[in-house]
Simulated scan of single mutants.
Amino acid sequence: MRKKLWQLHSWIGLFCGLALVIIGLTGSVLVFHQEIANSVYPEETLNSSTAPNAQRLPIDRLCETVESKFPEFWIRGWLFNYDSPQRDKAYVMRHGEEEWYLLYVDPYTAATSHAPIKTDQTIYGWFVDLHYTFFADHIGMAIAGIFALGFLFLSVSGFYLHKPFFKALFRLRIRASSRIFFSDLHKAIGIVTIPMNFIFGFTGAYWNITHLVHEIIEHSEEDHDHLESEYPAYRERIAELPDLADTTLPGYSLNYIYFPREEEPMFYLYGQHPGAGVFNSPYGSHIWVDAISGEVTYMQDLRKAHTWTKIADTFEPLHFGNFGGLTTKILWCIAGFSPAALCITGTIMYFKRGRRKARKHKTHFQTTPSKCASS
């Protein structure tokens, strides 16, 4: 049983190796994507200097500024950044098109970036597409999900196969043969990063698979040929949203708004309940608001949600490592290099083991006739 599991572990590792290297390295970049963007495009992503007691402009005024400055676009979503040097992000679409664009908006002055940019042309968007879909849309997402499942299997099987290695976790026999050295190194990296690798594999597979299932169900039930929005007719509702959300769920932190469409006249509000912990995502509590009547049609307080909903909500901070500030982000970034290290050391081990077996077989074949003759 152990031998067969070892072979399966090796074969799946070789099959998934290159893809996991790409996923791991891009994941490391994504951990610090905002810091990278701030360094490369500070004039686009960072707020202008403001006084400590500066007040954010109302969301309706920010929306009016975006629409008046870029009338060829309509707003699809708004991501808030509170107490942060980063600007808010407005997600917009050009009228008559389906591609998403990103626009940075200073919430204190309403200053915007020079022009909306396609989301897949941003640093974050480019790496996200490669990380989750290999630039192959839903087919790529399915493939990435399969590789994530493979990574999950490698983490679990590696833990089982190398359990005895805990006794000599930091033993690296440098003066031994290269096969033994790389074996020690492979086991050490695998054992140390098992918790994070298990999290990466499980959450990545869960997101990709559930997203695909949702897309299949949604496309089978709805017609998305018409995407033009009628939300300017609901403009008066925008100003009401923050107060309405706080009334519905006192202490609510509104972090993202998904705007209405003509065929779906609903504001979808995503945020956090009061007292949310470090392992809660920024979007775990939801409030749906009818854009015509202004009535709340649905509310999910994460504190009262089902157990699995609470568990799934932790996946985002656990996957990206942003729950512990800079320390965990650095650890998660380093862990993103582990698939590459495991792929390299595992491949070397596999082929050295194959050569060793070949040499043994050759030696046995050469010595057997002489033994027979002497007998």
Rank of each mutant, 00 (worst) to 15 (best):
I238S: 08
L269H: 10
I123V: 14
A136H: 00
I330E: 00
I23E: 01
T345P: 01
W207N: 09
P232A: 10
M299E: 06
R303S: 05
H162N: 10
A312H: 02
A239S: 15
I123K: 07
N208M: 02
T327P: 02
E236L: 12
N255D: 03
D83Q: 14
E264F: 15
P242V: 07
F279D: 06
Y101D: 02
L18E: 08
I334V: 14
H214C: 04
S370W: 15
R353N: 11
E262Y: 04
T193Q: 10
K360T: 12
D225L: 13
F73D: 07
Y132C: 03
L102C: 04
E215S: 11
I189D: 08
P116E: 09
R61Q: 15
A111F: 06
D243M: 15
P85N: 11
L227I: 13
L185A: 15
K310P: 06
T247G: 10
F315Q: 00
A176G: 14
R356M: 15
D106W: 08
A291P: 04
H306K: 08
A340M: 15
E64P: 08
H114E: 14
W126R: 11
T327S: 03
L318D: 03
T122Y: 02
R171A: 13
G275Q: 00
L212S: 00
R56F: 11
T248C: 10
R235Y: 15
I75C: 05
E72H: 06
G13D: 10
P242D: 03
F337R: 08
R179K: 12
G24Y: 08
T367Q: 14
L46W: 14
A148L: 13
H364F: 09
M266R: 13
D301T: 02
Y160G: 04
M196F: 15
P260K: 05
G27Y: 01
G277R: 01
D243R: 14
F135E: 01
F315D: 02
P58G: 09
S285P: 13
E72W: 06
Y283N: 05
P42S: 06
I292F: 05
G324L: 11
E99P: 01
G158Y: 04
N38P: 00
V213M: 03
I292S: 07
G158H: 08
F15T: 12
P52S: 05
G158M: 04
Y283S: 10
P282Y: 01
L172W: 15
H95W: 15
Y252T: 06
S155V: 07
Y350N: 03
T112H: 08
G13P: 02
D246S: 12
R179W: 09
D137Y: 02
G346I: 04
L185Y: 11
S374E: 13
L185K: 00
S370K: 05
K360Y: 14
H114P: 07
F159A: 03
K163N: 03
F153T: 02
F315Y: 06
P274Y: 07
Y124H: 03
K167P: 02
A54C: 10
F170H: 13
F279M: 11
G204Q: 09
S220G: 13
G325T: 05
S68W: 14
T328K: 06
